[in-house]
Design a protein around this nucleic acid. Structure first.
Length: 277
DNA sequence: CTCCTGCTCA
DNA sequence: TGAGCGGGAG
């Protein structure tokens, strides 16, 4: 097991390389100006599988509306969804709403800092928990996401294909700037964005890379349409709503049921409305 | 066409 | 382990 693949000189050189780019071209993003763990928590949920440019637009009004876990926890879900709409993966709004209620009731409105407490919250997996610990609490965590993959695959596995995250971990552990984890990950991800923009996405050589199914004509396109309709209409008879999104009643029914299963929709006597939370 | 600071559930 | 989940910029 090669736990320390790099020399001290190589580590210092790599860190300097990443920080040099960061100091010249680092992005100034809304959530980076905050040290409020809740605000950083919200940004991490929004950023799951979602471009920074999109989150940068939606984040400020969302934080203004829900500045504390309590504010979000006590708001009706449709109001949350209204400010979330456009970010995509709307069930994350449900997860975030639930997480806020958990933080409010279980942790007295302060975002927990332990990995187990974070992962017990809705919508928080290993990667997001570690990212929150690094960004909100400046703890020396190790986590991998697509930009980080691009950096480490490009620098340390230039010839390899189907690189497993396990192979990257020793390099991440050794190169992590433990004196400033939050700043380090900011620098790392900004540098990764550069590599992906200029080098045809080195992260494609990750074992964990997968092609997404097309969005046009997909079920999740129709799910999004349902939500936008109900944000306008308040409530709708089920059969009318199904007809509004598709000519295939069975498919429409399946879409509705999946939204109910995700607790985004509720129904009473064939009337559909956004779940109230 | 691609993929985006992943997670949940089967 | 894999399928499913938004929506749009490039």
């Amino acid at each position: 097991m090669n736990t320390s693949p790099l020399s001290a000189t190589e580590v210092a050189g790599f860190q300097a390389h990443v920080y040099r780019y960061f100091s010249l071209h680092g992005r100034s993003l809304p959530w980076r100006f905050s040290s409020n763990p809740w605000h950083i928590f919200v940004s991490e949920i929004m950023l799951q599988q979602t471009q920074v440019s999109r989150v940068a637009e939606k984040y400020p009004p969302f934080i203004e509306a829900f500045p504390t876990p309590q504010a979000l926890a006590q708001s009706p879900f449709p109001q949350v969804l209204a400010l979330w709409n456009g970010l995509g993966y709307n069930r994350r709004a449900r997860f975030l709403h639930s997480a806020a209620q958990q933080i409010h009731t279980l942790h007295h409105d302060s975002v927990p800092s332990t990995t187990s407490d974070l992962m017990a919250l809705s919508g928080i997996g290993a990667a997001t928990a570690a990212a929150i610990r690094a960004y909100a609490f400046n703890l020396p965590e190790i986590f991998i996401e697509t930009n980080i993959r691009a950096v480490y695959i490009y620098h340390f596995f230039p010839q390899n294909d189907a690189v497993d995250d396990c192979q990257l971990l020793p390099y991440l552990r050794q190169t992590l700037d433990k004196t400033a984890p939050a700043r380090w990950y900011n620098a790392l991800m900004d540098y990764g964005v550069l590599l992906k923009r200029t080098l045809k996405n080195p992260a494609k050589r990750s074992k964990h890379h997968s092609i997404q199914s097309t969005f046009a004509g997909s079920d999740r396109e129709l799910r999004g349409k349902v939500i936008r309709i109900l944000l306008q209409k308040d409530k709708q008879p089920k059969d009318e709503l199904i007809k509004a999104i598709t000519d295939d009643p069975a498919r429409g029914e399946r879409i509705i049921q999946s939204l109910i299963k995700d607790k985004i929709l509720s129904s009473e006597a064939e009337i559909l409305f956004l779940s109230t939370g």
